[in-house]
Design a protein around this nucleic acid. Structure first.
Lengths: 122, 122
DNA sequence: TGAACATATGAACATATATTCACATGTTCA
DNA sequence: TGAACATGTGAATATATGTTCATATGTTCA
C-alpha cells in the first residue's frame, strides 16, 4: 500500500509514493535558505570569479594586478570583485590609490577542495 | 623595489606589483581545471537543482514525486535531473515505468554543509 | 497489439548575467 | 589646485540558461 495516485491541483503531476513525499516535505529546509544556497553557489559558477578566488588563495592583490594576471580589463575585474564582496567572500582595504582584495571566508578553500576532489575522482 | 609599472599589450592594464603577479601566475592551476570548477559550481547555482539535491539527501525518489514535492511540472524536473546527472551528482535506476533518482557523490553533502556554515555564520 | 502511464527531449520564449565602454569617484603629489 | 592614476559604476550588448509546451520514447498490462 505505498500510496494512491493523487492529482495535484496546480500542475497535473501524479504522486506515486504519497508517504515518502509527505515525509520528505516535512524535513525540507526553509525555502529562503535554499534560495540563499543557490545564490551563494551561483557566485562560484563563473570562471572569472573562480580564477579571482584562486589568485586570492595565494596572495592579497590589487585590482589592476588581478586584471593583468587574468588578461582582462580592470572594469570586468572590478565588477566581479563587487559580486564576490557582496557574497562576503572577499574583503578589501585601501592603501592610497590602491585597493587590495583578500579572502574573507574560511569555508571557501574547503568547498574548493571538495569540488576538486569530485572533479578528479572519476 | 616591488615592481615597475608595465603596460600590458592587450588591454592597457598596469601591473603594479610585478613580482607578486609573476609568482602567482606560476602557481595557478590549469586553465581547464578552473573552467571545470566553474561549470561544476554552476550546477549548484539554481534553486530548483538545490531543492532536488536536498530532496535526494533524504530519500531516493522518482521524477513525478519530486515534481509534486516542488510544485513544478515533470518536464522541468526532468530537464534539471539531466543536468545533475551530467555533473555526475545523481544516478538513476529504472523499475518498470518509474525511474528513481538518487545521489551519486560523496562530496555534495560536505559542500552543502560548508555553504550552510558560511550562510549561517555571519 | 493498443491504451495508459512515467519519463525524456527539442524548440521557443523569457529572463539573467558577464563583459565592454564611457565616465564618475577618490587619492596622491607636484 | 590640477594632472595622473587606481578603482567604481551605469548603460548597452551579447550570450547563457530555466521553464513551458508539445511531443517522442519506453514500459506495463489487459
Amino acid at each position: 500500500m505505498n500510496g494512491n495516485k493523487v492529482k495535484v491541483d496546480c500542475c497535473e503531476v501524479n504522486i506515486i509514493h504519497e508517504d515518502i513525499v509527505k515525509k520528505v516535505r516535512e524535513n525540507m529546509p526553509d525555502e529562503d535558505l535554499l534560495y540563499d544556497m543557490a545564490d551563494f553557489f551561483r557566485v562560484f559558477g563563473d570562471s572569472t570569479r573562480v580564477k579571482i578566488l584562486h589568485v586570492l588563495f595565494q596572495s592579497e592583490m590589487c585590482v589592476c594586478d588581478i586584471a593583468a594576471l587574468l588578461n582582462m580589463n580592470q572594469s570586468a575585474i572590478s565588477h566581479q570583485l563587487r559580486v564576490l564582496k557582496g557574497a562576503r567572500l572577499v574583503k578589501n582595504r585601501r592603501e592610497g590609490k590602491v585597493v587590495y582584495y583578500s579572502l574573507d571566508d574560511e569555508h571557501v578553500k574547503q568547498i574548493f577542495d571538495q569540488a576538486m576532489a569530485h572533479l578528479k575522482h572519476k
